[in-house]
Design a protein around this nucleic acid. Structure first.
Length: 557
DNA sequence: GATTTCACGTA
DNA sequence: CGTACGTGAAATCC
């Protein structure tokens, strides 16, 4: 076995591991056995999916360096999210995905299929994989697990052969490793100071109620403050009733969203009360005591599910509120004793990415500045805020508002970047899939046959905006992952542990004595990832704001 | 019981 | 007529 050699890893739930190369097969029973092979040979682990193959190992504390995740590569090559073995197999062999067989209740009673094939062969006569196998039957005995592993090796090789661009290969490696990172994030969790968390929640909605009746009373008390100010009765949790209530008080609004009510603050006390009620209600229902109880373990770690690439442009997503926790609660995220948090966020990531992927020389030159919008403003001969709006409008497909004139300046000042965005938009409008810099296929959705002309036009426009944004957001997501995984690799020996990924922000926990070294590594890794991802270093400059802190809420810089 | 709408949090 | 995501409550659909 050689360093970087593909080795399939199949984990039979609770029954050990099967390792396979083109020429050999091993069966191992303990996680430590796998760890030993990792330490000695550092192969590229090949698996159907990280969660299935590596979950048990990661939870046992085994850290694997690199992998080929068949599901992740399938998502890159075909778009969408579904990437189960049956689907991957069908795509690879040009079989109709709609004809993928499923296990019906009858099959469970009589699992020996009557399709004329050999039930010990994972492939049916019609070419599809047997649902009995893909549904978990592959792990029934060791012989089957070995065949399942051999199948994975074949599939991974076929995926590899489809890749011709070096950067698409790099993306396959990055997206694969990101899946593994997600398994680690899910197992590891985010360190939370539970006492501080309770105190913060208490500040919004009062102390933890001791029983259901008290919870109900506290809720009613919060409601009454608003209803008293209104002078009328209404169910504040029913938007229709709130709208009616506001109408009675003279506020004619199309909906009752906060941003729409904001302008009326001061016009009537009820507006202000309602807005602060909403804030408290959000904490109470989504980020309150039940949330803390449900998601924080006895070890003080907040755990949620992670996905390495969502269905759209390939961003990482997280559950359990990890990605949308109100900023007011960030003070509860704290380093454990003897440790620090190293936090870094990428500055102006999307316009810098646009410069890199489009190759626009003027925009690339602008990335040399700490503040990219300053040189852009100079080139467009406008104020900085106008330049910023223009750049964002170009990337997001905004056409209305104040961005109009500055957008025309963008056309003449940064024609290559604008052409790049325009091409993506045109493809999307036409309903054709686009591919990000890393090669991720981003599918469009069809216009329904019964759509009238106006509807069809607005659907096409929405696809255009979506495609335009996906090229930037998707490439940014790919680059972020490349950075995060470089950090994962480089800081491991310093005891660094990535505890949160938030689109352009990384949170790493590390032993206090290594905080400064980890912070330096984050910056070094950014330059390293940029050079590896976009070619010779120094072309496009990326910047990070990095700090060593104890709590996430501590000020930047 | 599952899906949709409204609302709001993050980037 | 700027994008993406996750979550919860209530309404709505079947």
């Amino acid at each position: 076995m050689n360093r970087g050699e593909p080795v399939v890893l199949v984990t039979r739930p609770g029954a050990g591991f099967v390792l396979t190369t083109a020429s050999q097969t091993w069966t191992l029973s303990r996680p430590e056995d796998v760890a030993e092979i990792e330490a000695e040979h550092r192969p590229r682990w090949v698996w159907w999916s990280a969660a299935e193959a590596a979950g048990e190992l990661v939870r046992a504390g085994v850290r694997l360096a690199t992998c080929w995740d068949i599901a992740a590569v399938h998502r890159l090559q075909h778009g969408g999210y579904q990437a189960d073995p049956a689907r991957v197999w069908a795509a690879l062999h040009s079989l109709d995905v709609r004809a993928i067989p499923e296990l019906g209740p009858l099959d469970l009673l009589a699992p020996a299929g009557d399709d004329g094939g050999d039930p010990e062969n994972p492939q049916r006569p019609d070419g599809h994989l047997r649902p009995e196998w893909t549904g978990g039957g592959w792990s029934r005995d060791e012989g089957r697990a070995v065949r399942w592993a051999q199948l994975a090796l074949h599939v991974a090789q076929a995926q590899r052969e489809r890749i011709t661009e070096p950067r698409h290969l790099a993306a396959a490696h990055v997206e694969s490793a990101a899946e593994l990172l997600c398994v680690e994030l899910e197992a590891g969790g985010l360190p939370v100071d539970v006492v501080a968390a309770e105190a913060l929640v208490s500040g919004f909605i009062g102390p933890r109620p001791t029983d259901a009746a008290e919870a109900l009373a506290l809720r009613a008390r919060r409601d009454n403050v608003v209803l008293q100010a209104a002078g009328v009765n209404a169910d504040l949790r029913n938007p229709a009733q709130v709208k009616r209530m506001l109408a009675q008080l003279g506020f004619d609004v199309p909906d009752t969203r906060s941003w729409r009510l904001e302008p009326f603050v001061g016009a009537h006390p009820v507006i202000e009360e309602l807005l602060s009620w909403r804030k408290a209600e959000r904490i109470a229902t989504t980020y309150g005591y039940p949330w803390l109880d449900a998601n924080i373990g006895l070890d003080g770690r907040l755990r949620g599910g992670w996905t390495a690439s969502d269905g759209a442009a390939g961003r990482m997503t997280a559950g359990a509120g990890l990605h949308n926790m109100p900023s007011e609660l960030r003070g509860a995220v704290a380093a454990e004793p003897g440790k620090v948090l190293v936090r870094a966020d990428l500055g102006q990531i999307e316009p810098r990415i646009l410069a890199a992927v489009s190759g626009d020389r003027a925009l690339i030159a602008a990335t040399a500045d700490d503040d990219l919008y300053a040189p852009v403003a100079a080139r467009l001969k406008v104020e900085r805020p106008v330049a910023k709006v223009a750049v964002l409008a170009a990337m997001y497909g905004q056409t209305s508002g104040t961005a109009g004139e500055a957008l025309r300046g963008m056309e003449s000042g940064y024609p290559t970047a604008m052409r790049y965005l325009r091409t993506a938009s045109d493809e999307g409008r036409a309903g054709r899939a686009v591919r990000t810099y890393g090669g991720r296929v981003v599918r469009m959705w069809p216009t329904p046959d019964d759509a009238d002309e106006n509807t069809a036009r607005s659907i096409a426009a929405a696809r255009g905006r979506f495609a335009r944004n996906a090229m930037v957001q998707g490439a940014a997501a790919e680059f972020f992952k490349a950075w995060a995984l470089t950090v994962r690799a480089r800081t491991a020996e310093l005891g660094g542990e990535i505890v949160l990924c938030l689109h352009d922000e990384l949170l790493v926990q590390a032993p206090a004595q290594h905080g400064a070294a980890v912070a330096a590594a984050l910056d070094d890794c950014l330059a390293e990832a940029a050079g590896r991802w976009f070619g010779p270093a120094g072309q496009v400059r990326f910047v990070a704001d990095t700090s060593v802190i104890n709590r996430w809420s501590e000020a930047k810089g």
